[in-house]
């Protein structure tokens, strides 16, 4: 086991999160069981006050989780210097069998916590607080997911082993790999790219149609196809190496940290699309500006990834 300062920081924050979220969890169960706007007793008024505490706690956790995600990648990158064979975060994350799951949970939880806050903001504008029960039921699920993530994270760092030689991203993200990623390498990249642009055009169309369910679904699909096409195709142009498919390396300085820009725009774009659509379905009066926001950020993402192969082609006159 390792005890670097970074890991201690992550542990400390996890303990704080755990403490507060358990607190919030208990209150949430109470609210789900006893909340009734028509009741006018002390308990109902007490629950209302407690619900504000829970919301504050959730906002606190979410606001920290955003930069912590980046910090986690930073830390994994740094540890890669110590683990033989690992060249970037990918090697470190994949040196543990559930490393990938940790990542999936991290992203999922960011989406869910972000969505919860958006839902909460909508709810507090309503005098009857009619979404309160739903809101806290969602938090009960979110709490479980958070606990799973924290358990994964703690066991992840404590089972890192510096003596083990791991594969670097070059072999992890390749056709020959047997990792959980490998299935995507069976997709021909031309199909993946075609699909990616097709989904994006549908996203553009749906954002003008302003149909929430369609927009919701297309955003989810867009998120997945964007990641797949990034690994299969666009990534290789960022590295200018036809065989390098790693989705972490471009978070490093050599590539001007472009990965952060890509992931952040993709996150904002799809997040506002997904959460905006759901909120709109729940409440017809919800503002419709999420279409524009989602379209804007997703387009920025598409523009950046598209620019890489085009610039490469202009400079070199050939495709990779």
């Amino acid at each position: 086991m390792f005890l670097t300062p970074e890991i201690i920081a992550i542990y400390t924050l996890n303990i704080i999160f755990l403490f507060f979220s358990i607190f919030a969890f208990i209150i949430s169960i109470n609210i789900v069981m006893h909340w009734n706007v028509n009741r006018t007793d002390e308990r109902q008024y007490g629950l209302e006050k407690k619900s504000i505490l829970v919301a504050t706690i959730i906002k606190f956790i979410f606001i920290l989780k955003l930069p912590l995600f980046i910090f986690f990648v930073f830390t994994a990158n740094k540890i890669s210097g110590v683990i033989t064979g690992a060249m970037c975060a990918a090697g470190v994350v994949n040196s543990i069998s559930f490393g990938l799951w940790l990542f999936v949970f991290k992203i999922l939880n960011l989406f869910i916590f972000g969505f919860w806050i958006a839902l909460h903001n909508m709810d507090t504008k309503d005098e009857q607080l009619s979404l309160t029960k739903l809101k806290f039921s969602i938090f009960i699920v979110a709490f479980m997911l958070l606990v799973i993530e924290i358990i994964y994270e703690i066991s992840f760092f404590s089972s890192l082993n510096i003596d083990k030689i791991v594969s670097c991203c070059g072999t992890l993200f390749s056709v020959a790999s047997s990792s959980s990623f490998s299935f995507i390498f069976n997709i021909p990249s031309s199909i993946a790219i075609g699909f990616f642009y097709l989904i994006f055009s549908l996203l553009v169309v749906f954002s003008f149609l302003k149909n929430e369910p369609l927009f919701l679904v297309i955003n989810i699909i867009f998120f997945i196809t964007a990641l797949i096409s990034l690994i299969l195709f666009f990534g290789t142009y960022i590295y200018e190496l036809p065989t390098h498919h790693c989705p972490y390396c471009f978070l490093q300085q050599e590539y001007y940290y472009v990965g952060y820009l890509l992931y952040i725009t993709l996150f904002i774009g799809t997040f506002s699309g997904i959460s905006g659509s759901i909120l709109s379905m729940l409440n017809r009066k919800n503002r419709k500006d999420f279409y524009k926001k989602s379209l804007l950020f997703n387009s920025i993402y598409v523009a950046i990834v598209t620019a890489y192969p085009i610039v490469y082609y202009i400079k070199n006159g050939v495709w990779l």
């Binding site: 300062p5 992550i10 924050l13 704080i16 507060f20 606190f60 920290l64 910090f71 930073f74």
Partner: peptide
């Protein structure tokens, strides 16, 4: 800097 940030400010706010 990041590390220092995470070790201090969140604890205070919490």
């Amino acid at each position: 800097i990041f590390l220092l940030f995470f070790l201090t400010i969140p604890i205070y706010i919490a």
